[in-house]
Design a protein around this nucleic acid. Structure first.
Length: 516
DNA sequence: CGACGGGACGC
DNA sequence: CGACGGGACGC
């Protein structure tokens, strides 16, 4: 399936280059940010000359957004001019520029439990990055939640991370822009011009981790401000890079002959030595500590394996900033990314620099690290893995099962989900006793038997359903999971009774024909 | 005992 | 500096 219309949204980059495009150089430069699905160098139909445009499709929106953030304005080897990198419009939208196009990559539409407040919503999502606003739609008359709302980030990368990693019960989607296409509004038009030309201080220039200290301009108008400010700014590398100057080498462009020490020293003092880490389920204390100790100056790294939340502390703020920059978004295991944030509200920066440290002591082979620390750390992780320093997901000689921290028994390895529109073969009824289990854990457990379409608990309840596209997989899930303990809760897994109020048609051979 | 989910932004 | 190919549904 090399060609697939069902690629996730916002996975494709639109890159402006000059002529003489070398595809391999682009694969090389962009490949480190994720899995590249397609590279297309656009050529003129007749002359076969480059049109100066490259499209790169990644497997995930977060990879594309990270690549944009890191590569925009950079020079690709063999190409004289700095490139411009944007998230591509969908093919359907063509080259139309929407005055609200930033909302397509910064704002999520979410299904939200009716009991959840906007503050809770914000707290839930700020683990993925700085939030512009979090709104819940309410009934005009009684103020009750309508069960959905929006969260807008300042950076496409953070929005994509939230989309991919938040609890699936939020059913996250990139929000459609508020106004219909072509419905011009003069205020927005003016703001658009203004923000592009002069770029006043605004949300984009706030530090990422200022906590509640967001300045005096935070108030009831923040929704409005957030909507207007800085839109269409996402393409500038300054706009979406996390930290103020001095920057990492990523935002400086290629740095030659600058060693890791200098690089760490050049990091802005965030005033924060402690990092908050969201780790994928199943990652172990030992593995995480090894990973974070690859960055010099680690004091400790404490992981709560039940929640996947860890705190790591470094000897200097610069080291912490460096670790955050290098490990945030680090993908391990495949498909899961670490999320690394400053744990504390940074103080006013001072100019202390990192004390002398030596990468050579950290056992990274070929640890010159001058070209690409991310890549080196990846390699180091692979080496650790080969050396058996591994999350203990994989246990025993039997490669078909593994130990996961949330469950009392060994489980089969995770398997991909079936598409949401798969036809339902078997439904299971699930009870968690005495209390509910987070859906991400249920999902991780129930997907392991294959062909899982969806698993969810009814909101505010400790029971729910799992839907499978194959009966065998569903029955296997019952046989393995029923009676076991997951995240400290006893699990009941039964075949579900048919839905209560369903107009039943007993027609045997009437299978769902997909529409459209 | 424990039985059936939610969906687009006041102008 | 600003926008769309090749491939192709089904044994």
């Amino acid at each position: 399936m090399a060609y697939n219309h069902n690629v996730p949204e916002n996975c494709r980059l639109f890159i402006l280059v000059g002529k003489g495009i070398k595809e391999d150089a682009f694969r090389e430069a962009f490949g480190k940010y994720g899995k590249i699905e397609d590279v297309w160098v656009v050529k003129d139909r007749r002359s076969n000359e480059d049109k100066g445009v490259v499209y790169i499709t990644f497997s995930k929106a977060s990879e594309a957004a990270l690549a944009m953030q890191e590569m925009n304005g950079r020079v690709v080897p063999g190409h004289p001019k700095p490139i411009k990198v944007l998230i591509a419009n969908s093919k359907r939208d063509g080259s139309v520029r929407d005055p609200h196009e930033d909302e397509k990559i910064l704002r999520l539409f979410l299904i939200i439990p009716k009991s959840m407040s906007e503050d809770e919503l914000r707290r839930e999502f700020e683990q993925y990055g700085d939030i512009d606003y979090a709104t819940i739609l309410r009934d005009k008359n009684n103020g009750e939640s309508k069960g959905f709302g929006y969260v807008k980030f300042f950076r496409p990368y953070h929005a994509a991370l939230a989309l991919e990693n938040c609890d699936r019960s939020f059913k996250p989607k990139f929000a459609e822009p508020k106004m219909p296409r072509g419905d011009r509004d003069n205020d927005y038009e003016m703001d658009y011009q203004y923000s592009r030309e002069t770029r006043p201080p605004g949300p984009f220039f706030r530090g990422p981790d200022r906590g509640p200290d967001r300045g005096p301009d935070r108030g009831p108008d923040r929704h409005e401000r957030g909507t207007k400010r800085g839109f269409s700014e996402y393409s500038g590398r300054d706009d979406y890079h996390d930290d103020g100057p001095p920057r990492s080498r990523f935002s400086h462009g290629p740095v030659v002959g600058e060693g890791p020490m200098e690089m760490i020293q050049n990091y802005a003092n965030s005033g924060c030595q402690r990092l908050h880490v969201t780790a994928p389920l199943g990652l172990t204390q030992q593995y995480l500590t090894r990973l974070f100790s690859l960055i010099p100056g680690l004091e400790y790294c404490d992981l709560n394996e039940a929640t996947g939340i860890a705190y790591a502390r470094y000897t200097t703020p610069q080291c912490a900033a460096y670790a955050k920059d290098k490990l945030d978004g680090f993908e391990y295991p495949l498909g899961s990314r670490l999320i690394v944030r400053f744990a504390d509200v940074p103080n006013v920066p001072d100019l202390k620099t990192a004390s002398a440290m030596n990468f050579e002591n950290y056992g990274i082979p070929g640890s010159s690290l001058e070209r690409d620390e991310c890549d080196t750390i990846r390699k180091a992780a692979l080496i650790l893995e080969k050396a058996g320093i591994n999350p203990d997901r994989v246990l025993a000689s039997d490669n078909s099962v593994e130990r996961v921290t949330y469950c009392n028994i060994l489980l089969p390895l995770p398997k991909p989900l079936s598409p949401e529109d798969s036809s339902l073969a078997q439904r299971l009824f699930i009870v968690c006793q005495p209390a509910a289990v987070p859906e991400r854990i249920l999902r991780d457990a129930f997907c392991r038997f294959g062909d899982l379409i969806d698993v969810y608990l009814l909101s505010g309840r400790n029971y729910g359903y799992a839907k499978y596209a194959s009966k065998e997989c569903a029955m296997k899930a019952i046989s393995v999971l029923h009676g076991q303990s997951i995240a400290g809760q006893r699990l009941k897994v039964l075949e579900a009774e048919p839905p209560k109020d369903e107009n039943r048609r007993e027609g045997r051979d009437r299978h769902d024909s997909h529409s459209e």
